[in-house]
Design a protein around this nucleic acid. Structure first.
Length: 573
RNA sequence: UGGCCCUUCGUCCAACGGCAGGACAGCGGACUUUGGAUCCGUCAAUGGUGGUUCGAAUCCACCAGGGCCAACCA
């Protein structure tokens, strides 16, 4: 077996990578081996700049750029900007940033709008050859004449215009002599074709609109099918990868590149688009969430957009690892959120420092600890099994904040945390034993009292006695107030489209997708955290200081993902 | 009432006519100064029927279920 795969510099080539990967890489391998294209592997990522990229796009980006990298080929970034009504430069910039952030560099940056001239010339050539004609029927009549999936279409009354007539009309369309919708250019294929896409598809339509790059220079705009395959061909793309719903478009893709005379045209291959539980991945739906204010914007940390994931604290490495584990295939797949969360934790575990932050503070008073005394404990930033070193000073004093959930008056079986008479370890601090509680008039616990064992400084008992529980804490006197944004799934249903008749996905939104914990207490070592700093808050989850809202005097942390919580599972039984 | 595509553990992906395997999730255990991590173990699948074959997840036929296609969107 030949190995066309090039290892990245400095890395060993994993054995049999070419043999074991997905069906697309197998195909590319075979094409490289046969020399079918007579040119290096060349892929492209072709977003339409009408919205932000999401994790589904990340799958495609990893595929296209990944294949180019593995086969020592090239990958273009091409903006498929053929619809002036919906596209915007703002999205072009966002897309560039997201692709780069994911860790990929494109070889050439292209725009379909740069090809308008060439496409128009091909249109004229097709007209001259009788392969295309100008249809002057009204839009509704064209639609009606297309037939249905079970009935053939009927030819347009304009289908038999002479090449001369068509050419003149096309030139006048181009010259701006007609209003929007007056004429369209159509391919002359077969109005009875079983594939509806082949029933004389529209190629050009008139739009007197301002294009974000071409201004008012053009008033005829190509449709997707006309622009896409030919753009691939212009760029010498070999493998044109897209999602399954474009399968039917492949007939037309092949027809067009053939008619345009390309000798070894690109080949389109389709794969299943990503679907994720408790999420929507459609730019149309995401745009609605933004426009209707269900989220704070495209980069709201609850959004499955690259920008949202980034702001939430997810790393590009985690997204790439996720893309790797879900694979590429042709069957419709809905991925469980746990798969993504695992990729995120797996990456963060190995790289972020640990600190202590109390989300819902409850006062713990160490009654036998001197009032004015403060000790500085040295606490490691990483656990024993992470190969990074470092520590930070953590102040300890008589009054501490602990997590409300870590004290229970009536502890159930298997509850290892604090309750009356119980001894627990304060992480890196002392062993303390609960001696009582103070309640307010309403019966709410406002303080927990405990005594500490001075011999257990650092958390080890010299007599070797074991405690079941270890809890985190923050010295009250030294605590930093901060805000925690606790994000959860955006939708309450695994399939947000699965809602009762008459409702849509908006009805499936999770009302608790964001819980804000104000008045959380952080240990002083995070005071210097610049925006975008990642931590693990011990026993709680991975957090990142919000790159926009967090300030030194008003820290804000986004929860990227919670830690696995086996107590929560136990408790629910 | 058409064309095309898909169907393997709960989920995702492999096995390309020759012992159905991995990951995630779950469960059990070991370890543990995070109920984290790690390690070990374990549960768990070829949609159905027929055919071809020494042998079928794999090839064929039919059936069932799911998806895409009737925008001057992409």
């Amino acid at each position: 077996m030949t190995h066309p795969v090039q290892p990245p510099p400095g890395e060993a080539l994993p054995r049999d990578i070419a043999a074991r990967k997905d069906f697309i890489r197998e195909k590319v391998s075979a094409d490289v081996a046969s020399g079918r294209f007579g040119r290096p592997v060349h892929t492209r990522f072709p977003p339409e700049p009408n919205g932000f990229l999401h994790i589904g796009h990340a799958k495609s980006i990893c595929l296209n750029f990944g294949i180019a990298r593995e086969f020592a080929g090239r990958c273009n970034l091409r903006f498929d900007d053929t619809n002036p009504a919906t596209e915007d430069l703002r999205y072009v910039d966002a897309i560039r940033e997201d692709v780069r952030w994911l860790g990929f560099a494109w070889d050439e940056e292209r725009f379909a709008s740069d090809y308008f001239e060439r496409l128009y010339e091909i249109a004229e050539a097709m007209v001259r050859e009788g392969k295309a004609y100008v249809d002057s029927d009204r839009e509704e009549r064209i639609r009606a004449a297309r037939g249905t999936v079970i009935e053939p279409g009927t030819p347009s009354p304009f289908r038999d215009r002479t090449a001369g007539e068509n050419l003149e009309l096309l030139r006048r369309m181009r010259a701006g002599e007609f209003p929007d919708g007056a004429h369209v250019l159509r391919a002359r294929i077969d109005m009875a074709h079983p594939n509806m896409l082949m029933r004389d598809p529209l190629l050009l339509r008139i739009r007197h609109a301002e294009h974000y790059r071409r201004g008012a220079e053009w008033c005829v705009y190509p449709l997707y099918d006309f622009a896409h395959g030919l753009s691939d061909a212009f760029e010498g793309i070999t493998h044109s990868l897209c999602t399954l719903e474009f399968k039917d478009n492949r007939d037309l893709y092949d027809w067009l590149v053939h008619e345009a005379g390309f000798a070894r045209p690109p080949e389109q291959t389709e794969f299943a688009r990503l679907e994720l539980d408790y999420t929507v991945l459609s730019k149309r739906k995401l745009l609605r969430l933004v426009n209707e204010g269900h989220v704070a914007g495209w980069d709201d940390p609850r959004m499955p957009t690259i920008a949202g994931l980034r702001r939430r604290g997810v790393t590009p490495e985690a997204i790439r690892a996720f893309a790797d584990t879900i694979g590429v295939a042709r069957s419709d797949a809905r991925i469980e959120l746990a798969t993504l969360e695992h990729a995120v934790r797996d990456d963060l575990n190995m790289r972020v420092p640990r600190v202590m932050v109390v989300a819902r503070p409850l006062k713990l008073v160490i009654t036998n600890y001197p009032e004015e005394r403060v000790e500085t404990l040295d606490a490691p930033l990483y656990p024993h099994d992470v190969p990074l070193t470092g520590s930070r000073p953590v102040p300890f004093s008589r009054e501490l904040w602990i997590e409300r959930d870590d004290f229970l008056e009536q502890p159930p079986k298997k509850f290892f945390r604090l309750s009356q008479g119980r001894e627990v370890r304060l992480r890196y601090g002392y062993l303390v034993t609960c001696t009582g509680v103070v309640k307010d008039a309403a019966g709410e616990i406002v303080e927990v009292h405990a005594t500490y064992d001075p011999a257990t400084r650092g958390g080890d008992a010299p007599d070797g006695r074991r405690v079941q529980g270890t809890i985190h804490w923050v010295s009250a006197r030294h605590a930093l107030d901060c805000e925690l944004r606790l994000y959860d799934r955006l939708f309450a249903r695994a399939d947000p489209d699965d809602v009762p008749e008459g409702q849509d996905f908006v009805a499936a939104l999770n009302p608790n997708s964001l819980v804000t914990a104000r008045g959380a207490k952080a240990e002083p070592s995070v005071a210097a955290a610049p925006p975008g700093s990642r931590y693990q808050f011990e026993r709680t989850g991975y957090f990142m200081s919000d790159p926009i809202d967090s300030r030194p005097d008003a820290l804000v942390f986004n929860r990227t993902v919670a830690l696995r919580d086996s107590w929560a599972r136990l408790k629910d039984r």
